[in-house]
Simulated assay, not measured.
Amino acid sequence: MTTSPGTLTPALRSRLADVMHAAHTEADARRAEVRQLRNVLTIALLAATLMVGALVLLGALRPASVPLCAETLATAATAEVPATPTSPAIAAVPATPAGTVCPAGGANHRYDIVLVSLFGLLGATIAVVAKVSTTSAKDLSYSPTVPQLALKLPAGVLTAIAATVLVRSGLFSVVNLKPSQAAILFTALLFGYAQQVFTRFVDQKANTVVEAAKPPTG
């Protein structure tokens, strides 16, 4: 028996069914990978948030256990230098004793870690806003975009606390800020934003998985 052009034979139907089944199986596998990544990011977000809560609670209850204050060195007094025909007068500078500068001002306080955390969170929020402005909406179920961006917030707090401790300890001699309340809070803000250095690897992985799961166009 001959078939007219355009008629599907049983063999051709079987081959097309196999191709469609393989395509759907591959798409399901890609979507499953997106869901798995979203679940992993959600767990990481919860773990990071719990870690932030534990650190803030520890620092609030026992401020000395999370050293965020900076030591200031004593300076000697200088005498007044009178003006000369070639140079202006230089005023006298009184001596300053050694002391401690903390994020909340004054001595070690339970609010020190709260302030550092807030400024780290502010830096991370700036990074999230910048990321959102360049992120397109994903037409995928279980998109990892929300936990991917939310993870940056506790990560910013953690990097702010860790960096403030390290910088104040003098381990980073390249960061030579004069010890002051503003310098400590600026350090927290800067490193809260700098969590992007670490979370960009998560961004790259998420983008790769999402792009692979998107249906082909054209």
Rank of each mutant, 00 (worst) to 15 (best):
A98G: 05
A70M: 11
A213H: 01
R30F: 12
A11P: 10
F198K: 06
V202A: 10
P147A: 13
A155V: 04
Q204F: 12
T3Y: 12
R31P: 10
R38V: 05
P5V: 02
Y142N: 07
Y193I: 02
Q196P: 03
A27W: 15
V210I: 15
M51D: 05
G170F: 08
A98S: 01
A150V: 12
T217C: 01
T7N: 13
V157D: 00
R110I: 08
V174M: 08
G53V: 02
A194F: 13
M20Q: 13
A27H: 14
A95T: 01
G218Y: 07
F191L: 09
R168I: 09
T86A: 14
Y193R: 08
V165C: 11
L153S: 04
Y193W: 15
C102M: 06
T125F: 15
P67T: 00
A98C: 01
L185Q: 01
E71I: 02
L121R: 00
F198Y: 11
A127D: 01
K178E: 11
L166Y: 06
P147H: 09
D18L: 11
A104P: 15
T72C: 05
G120W: 01
S65D: 07
G120E: 00
N108R: 14
A206F: 04
V157E: 01
V157T: 08
G53S: 02
F172M: 09
V209E: 00
V157Y: 04
A76V: 03
D203C: 11
P85E: 04
Q204I: 14
R110P: 11
I113Q: 07
V114W: 15
I43E: 04
T86R: 12
A29Y: 06
V56N: 07
R62K: 07
G218K: 13
A11D: 12
V165E: 10
A213I: 00
Q196I: 13
K131E: 14
S136G: 10
S4A: 15
A206D: 08
A44D: 09
G120P: 05
L46F: 01
P82N: 03
L189S: 06
L8A: 15
A77S: 07
P67I: 03
L122S: 14
V132F: 07
P216G: 10
S143R: 00
A107V: 14
A83Q: 02
L45C: 04
E71L: 03
T199G: 10
S133M: 12
L185G: 09
